[in-house]
Design a protein around this nucleic acid. Structure first.
Lengths: 322, 322
DNA sequence: TTGAAAGCGCTAACAC
DNA sequence: GTGTTAGCGCTTTCAA
């Protein structure tokens, strides 16, 4: 490995001079500059970023904390973050937290010791506690985790309202909501939006809670249909959950959208792969990831970011299930 | 930030002693040890890994290069890698390469300067060239990239054989293969397995090439069906492609599996979400990721790994599309 | 305009 | 057993 010393020797200048031309800081005569540049070229020198980190206490790395990359909502988000990071010269450290605070903490400690510059956090639910004390640039993604932390999220409540209204307009009069996990903010917001519209329109309704897994959604839907055979609309808190519901519907011999209309939430690619294709509330997933990364980098490089909450609008995408 | 010096001062010993008890190396009296431990506790000291990296020229990080996390085959792989890495005390740097050699190279340079300890590589197709010269522990995942590099992959050819035989046994006599991108090794192997069986059994067949995107698969299938209306079986090179084919089939009013039987490859969660659910050749995705990470870490910590190729068996999962 | 040298936090000879 | 010290590779005063 060739170091700055090698370059200095080769160029017959001091390491200080090499450092100066490397960073375009301070003086360096045209002559010296040329010799250094030549030496760098010749020796194929690349500055060692660990040494730089040690001095500057920054690393050019950002941490990306998400519950589980295996949940199809997250890959696109991750991709967006990574794209922006790469462009800005950062590198992304990838951390699946499984919503466990312990894992989050563990990763945080590890990353802090590596001088990670900031973190994008799709936080675990319960721990709204002490991210502020983490003392590091943080941006919350998809989930609001506190007043002092910049947040990027969708307008979940409004999306849920649109979904429910849509179902009602399509003639549904008894609508079930497959709610996401308790304590997860977007799930709660969606449920709230649903309840609002149901009340406003005086619809019959029922809410059951599921996690975001397809299998559980299927089971819960089966139970639901047994208890309430006259349900004619389902608003699922995620597209995956909706897919589970559709399985249950097919199993019990119901046609979609004939007997029961279904709408999901998220707008992941899955929607188009289902037959019938799934009506959903589309989030601007990639853009949210982008925005989060931009906010974080801005915060890292220029200190505090101006605004705190970035709520992205959602849009109803009508497909075959309604 | 509290450093080793602070600890030394507080414990009234030298930094060397602190370092010794920290790393359990060399001597330290019970008394000294106790005082140091107390000081660490008291000051909430955490060793700085950047400083350690600078000395040891290692970082406790591994790079994970994959084409695109957005392709549903990869998240589970990534998850497995990350799980093993975390367990072993490593941290994963996440790199989407888009199959572009330039991006790969760029990332590689960046990571090398950070003293990344090794790389797991789902390589871009064309560049079988010079990974060996990268001079860093590498494990190839999903794609074979050269004799000298340990590889973890599925038995693609055999899986394709099983798929094709299965279609034949189900009575298909004119089978189309939606092949993956040219030059991507697994795609070629699957096509080869398909061709073999087709020849052995004297079946009518046709092969068209697609990338792994659903939209293109749908278009290509439509064309295919127009040219060869009597196709009665489709072997898709991936589950996503299969989903595309199913869309086309539905559009042209064909029933699955009645008119045309369909089989995919990969075994991603999508299979169970489709209606009808998709028969596929199941890869041991998580296990492959695990294995790759284990091999890499072993290589990092104990030098060369024993065996070079780890080919995982695949299994036919029969569902409703056949 | 340049170079010597201190220091970022930690490790490991080496001397005591 | 323990402490002193010279690095790891880079940046930045500060004096020349």
């Amino acid at each position: 490995m060739t170091t700055i010393k090698d370059v200095a020797k080769y160029a017959e200048v001091s390491v200080a001079t090499v450092s100066r031309v490397l960073n375009d800081r301070g003086y360096a005569s045209a002559e010296a500059r040329r010799r250094v540049l030549d030496a760098i070229e010749e020796l194929n020198y690349q500055p060692n970023s660990v040494a730089r980190s040690l001095y500057h206490k920054t690393s050019g790395m950002i941490g990306l904390f998400m519950p589980d990359i295996t949940n199809p909502f997250f890959p696109e988000l991750a991709r967006a973050v990574e794209d922006v990071a790469l462009e800005a010269g950062y590198t992304v450290v990838f951390c699946n937290t499984d919503e466990e605070e312990a894992k989050e903490k563990r990763y945080f400690d590890a990353l802090k010791q590596k001088y990670v510059d900031g973190i994008i956090l799709t936080a675990s639910s319960q721990s709204a506690s002490d991210y502020a004390q983490w003392d590091m640039p943080i941006v919350a993604l998809d989930r609001v985790i506190g007043k002092h932390i910049p947040t990027v999220a969708s307008d979940n409540k409004n999306g849920a309202r649109q979904a429910t209204i849509h179902l009602a307009e399509r003639g549904c009069s008894f609508i079930a909501h497959l709610k996401g996990p308790a304590g997860v903010r977007p799930a709660d917001d969606r449920a709230a939006g649903f309840e609002e519209v149901v009340k406003e329109k005086g619809l019959r309704s029922v809410v059951v809670q599921t996690n975001f897994s397809i299998k559980e959604a299927e089971q819960e839907t089966l139970k639901l249909l047994a208890d309430h055979p006259d349900i004619d609309g389902i608003f699922a808190a995620s597209d995956v959950t909706a897919a589970g519901a559709m399985q249950a519907l097919a199993q019990t011999g119901r046609s979609v959208p004939g007997d029961v209309k279904v709408i999901g939430f998220d707008g992941i690619p899955l929607c188009n792969m289902l037959v019938p294709s799934l009506t959903t509330v589309q989030q601007s997933i990639y853009q949210m990831g982008e925005k989060a990364a931009q906010l974080l980098i801005q915060q890292i490089e220029h200190g505090e970011s101006e605004s705190r909450e970035h709520i992205f609008p959602v849009s109803l995408i009508i497909r075959e299930t309604t």
